[in-house]
Design a protein around this nucleic acid. Structure first.
Lengths: 343, 343
DNA sequence: GATAAAAAAACAATCGATTGTATTTTTATG
DNA sequence: CATAAAAATACAATCGATTGTTTTTTTATC
């Protein structure tokens, strides 16, 4: 085997004195090729170190064994678990995964969508950038029958597959749990809620839970973070704790925020959950490590990735032009640990 | 613009009554094409919604704008930061990133390397699977002049680019720091060290630091985890704490292990760092959140990703057949926080 | 206005696998 | 053994962009 030459089906064809079409078919066990030839071809292909050029196949067939994944970032635990779920599922079916990080920038997202389209990905899984309101850059996939799944951060008005949790219900459950623990003055940490995203839904749940239990929502108890980071979380938490009458409970729309709330409270000598009960969202790894252990809402990240990938794979294969674009809701649960348990 | 037709340079050529070669060159500002034509072509391309087919370009040029990344998992904070660094750097130069997770399986790694090769990636960045000892499946890249960078978990005997930290020195520094704090009986948590990897190096540093300070290493003080998880960390920590004479300090080769050590110690009513000083490795996000804050060794994940990607990009472009394959060492520091500070 | 030189654009092959159609070979049957 | 049917294989076009080589067009010069 030459060191620097890439082996193609032409090389195999020449060696065996066969046509390239025969080689191509033999390698995929086509029924018109005799057993004898198939065996021979496979043996020689192996010996010569043949690796199919997926570009050529993709160009010819106008499709690739690749799924494009477009997410705000890969470093958030929720998203890295999501990606892991996608990647494992894709791999099982022989599909590869191209990853792009929008960094929550709308412009980057537009450009990356175009790039994925140019790469002829067979499907796209996307969690929207925080700043995205217009989603017309995804229309190209739909009009070319490339399956598109939005996951977690999804647009409201785009008719395609969606995999989400019921953020409203989850926000409701989380808040109600705090009420059941005896909290009457419940703060809420949220982020970028003005963009009408999943945080807004969680907040709606929070507000409705309060109303159901005859608690009047107070604007001062809701803090909207600029970014979901530990530092911003600390700032926001302090805003709540600095109030003349601080809250006796906090529902944070993410575990990072919840953790910063716990730390900020502890730093002031407040007992959690004694003085203030706290519940987060996501069930990030840190939630079972922080002291006190953080009560939170489970958010099945890997499962969401798996299901998203499965939807893509199914809709590539079936090639149904107008498959019914459904929303898949996954269950969440209130995971009661120490930080919210007053009784 | 038709809804379901993909626009190619042929469509543009037909519309403008020009040759496809002219279109192709105009789109990249080739000097043999007149300004007038270039402007006209670009305008029409834009109007028709032309997106270049990267498969076709890749097939023709036998190279793609894609970097393959092969890592054990994407969910560990160190690796997701590494990937993030790679992705951002690649994106800036117009390169995409294909991700594969070996899940620490040797067989998966072999198959994925082949798959990346078939995808004609322009370069490969890999962090080896825990179980990999034979690395001959990477030879195909080298012999085809596809730049290959190993990062963090690198093979000893493979002549290619490597981006690592000095694990020996870091292990030494961490251990010496504990000694300086007055620890005399220092435990060590490590993982899969028999495979001769970076954990082994850290352990060598640990052992040499002890020797330098005339402390005799004891086998009972070294615990080798089966897997780097919180649960295994707890088991291993308890093994140390259950000793007749438990250690007064622990150097854990990873922050997860260190965190489990802190929790296990606290659960027994031991004070950290009072009764037992603990230092980890990586500077994972959790290290500044755990109580007490974890002292650790900084591990510049994103930077390592960036540098790895830069090496790939540089060596694609220069196309030097025999560029000197160097090892890039990045600095680490002892980050002293609460968990190890006795004075 | 003829001609050479320069500029612009066209022609045509190429990358490697796939696939519809044609051709050759084999097998079966009277 | 001839012939039809079936099986196996070959032929050739195709996917879309790129690029070395020609050809055509434009510009400059005498």
């Amino acid at each position: 085997m030459e060191e620097n030459k890439v082996v193609t089906i032409y090389d195999i064809a020449e060696k065996l004195n066969l046509a390239t079409s025969t080689i191509s078919r033999a390698l995929k066990d086509h029924h018109t090729i005799s057993e004898k030839t198939i065996k021979k071809v496979k043996k020689v292909a192996e010996e010569m170190g043949y690796v199919p050029n997926t570009l050529a196949a993709g160009l010819r067939g106008n499709k690739t064994q690749t799924i494009g994944v477009l997410v705000p970032t890969v470093t958030q635990p929720f998203l890295s678990s999501l990606i892991s779920g996608i990647e494992i599922t894709a791999q099982k079916s022989g599909y590869n995964v191209i990853i792009m990080q929008s960094n929550d920038s709308y412009e980057a997202e537009v450009s990356m969508a175009k790039s994925l389209y140019g790469s002829r990905v067979s499907g796209v899984i996307c969690s929207l950038a925080m700043k995205t309101t217009d989603t017309s850059h995804f229309q190209q996939f739909v009009s070319k029958d490339i399956p598109l799944v939005f996951v977690d951060r999804v647009p409201k008005d785009f008719d395609t597959f969606k995999v989400i949790i019921d953020n409203y219900a989850a926000g409701f459950k989380a808040t109600e749990h705090l009420i059941e623990q005896g909290c009457t003055r419940i703060g809420h940490l949220t982020a970028g809620s003005k963009f009408g995203n999943l945080y807004t839904e969680r907040m709606r749940g929070y507000l409705d839970a309060l109303k159901k239990h005859n608690i009047t929502p107070k604007e001062e108890l809701i803090v909207d973070l600029k970014a979901v980071t530990y530092e911003e979380g600390v700032k926001a938490s302090n805003k709540l704790l600095d109030l003349k009458t601080p809250p006796d409970g906090i529902f944070a729309s993410g575990d990072i925020m919840a953790v910063s709330a716990i730390q900020s409270a502890k730093k002031r000598g407040l007992s959690v959950p004694g003085d203030i009960a706290i519940i987060g969202f996501n069930n990030d790894p840190i939630s079972e490590i922080i002291d006190p252990n953080l009560s939170t809402i489970t958010h099945p990240a890997a499962k969401m990735g798996q299901i998203s990938a499965e939807i893509i794979l199914k809709n590539i294969k079936s090639a149904k032009k107008n498959a019914e674009k459904g929303i898949t809701y996954l269950d969440t649960e209130v995971l009661v640990r120490e930080s919210s348990q007053k009784n």
